[in-house]
């Protein structure tokens, strides 16, 4: 499924990323390179660390050790003003959309423009936001409040907001969660369109196998804070790794229980 627009130049480079939640280590030294123009799917079950991984590459947390380079800038080291510049090149679609509920859809989409492109006049901003609404098939909905939209529409509006600054990097957190199969497929099409038409590098965190196999250029499988493998759809499907096969065939995993640890957890001693 390799795509012609992938240049092979890295857009995102993560090296030896270790993160903690309180005293618990969540990610145990993750290294991953995502190339320009590719769709990388981060897959894994609940508690695999995939959402944590996303938080850190979005710069929403400070890692314990390791480096995260986005577009050749190490976000663990750069100043806040450099980070601000970098953020203009990043778009994020959150799981629940995260549109500001006090504003209309149009105002939500124009918000990044108001904040970062204030030299533009109101009419230009309106036209730009309408163009992005057309891209996500929500033309004519700019004056609706987020509460008046369905789940799928909210997610698409959130994509419109994320792409209004024409970012080079686009991140999706569980795009198909809570959507029916048809709407979910539409969103997959939209993600492919963003890569092909806008040449974006796209990272999608998901546990939906169908959608992952449909849109992925490469897939990274996370499990308990480790990378099990990174590879193309075929490579993942043909993997001989037990954990990956259990995930693909929806088999419950048989974790071995350490008797001492188990007792310790129960007694709290």
């Amino acid at each position: 499924m390799n795509h012609t627009s992938i240049t092979g130049r890295p857009a995102i480079e993560v090296k030896d990323l270790v993160t903690h939640y309180g005293s618990r280590e969540i990610l145990h030294g993750i290294s991953l390179t995502i190339n320009e123009g590719e769709i990388m799917i981060i897959m894994g079950g609940s508690g695999s660390g995939k959402s944590t991984f996303l938080r850190y590459i979005l710069g929403l947390g400070t890692p314990t050790t390791g480096s995260i380079k986005l577009l050749d800038k190490d976000i663990t080291k750069i100043s806040s003003s450099e980070m601000l510049e970098l953020r203009k090149n990043m778009g994020v679609s959150f799981q629940g959309g995260a549109l500001l509920s006090s504003m209309t859809v149009g105002e939500n989409i124009r918000l990044p423009l108001y904040e970062h492109q204030s030299q533009l006049n109101e009419q230009t901003m309106r036209i730009m936001s309408r163009m992005k609404l057309e891209v996500v098939n929500l033309g004519g909905f700019e004056n609706f409040m987020p509460s008046q939209l369905s789940g799928g529409m909210i997610k698409r509006a959130a994509v419109a907001r994320a792409i209004v600054m024409d970012p080079k990097l686009m991140f999706f957190d569980e795009p198909s969660a809570g959507l029916d199969p048809v709407v979910s497929a539409e969103l997959d099409e939209l993600i492919l369109k963003l890569r092909d038409a806008m040449k974006m590098t796209i990272v999608v965190v998901t546990h939906e196998l169908d959608s992952a196999f449909k849109i992925a250029d490469r897939i990274t499988v996370l499990d308990n804070g480790h990378i099990l493998m990174t590879g193309t759809v075929e490579e993942v499907k043909n993997s001989t790794n037990d954990r990956i096969q259990s995930m693909l065939n929806r088999r419950p995993s048989n974790e071995e229980i350490n008797a001492d640890e188990y007792l310790q957890r129960l007694t709290g001693m």
Partner: peptide, 8 residues
């Protein structure tokens, strides 16, 4: 979080 990632 959305505000933060938009650079706001």
């Amino acid at each position: 979080d959305a505000l933060r990632v938009m650079g706001i």
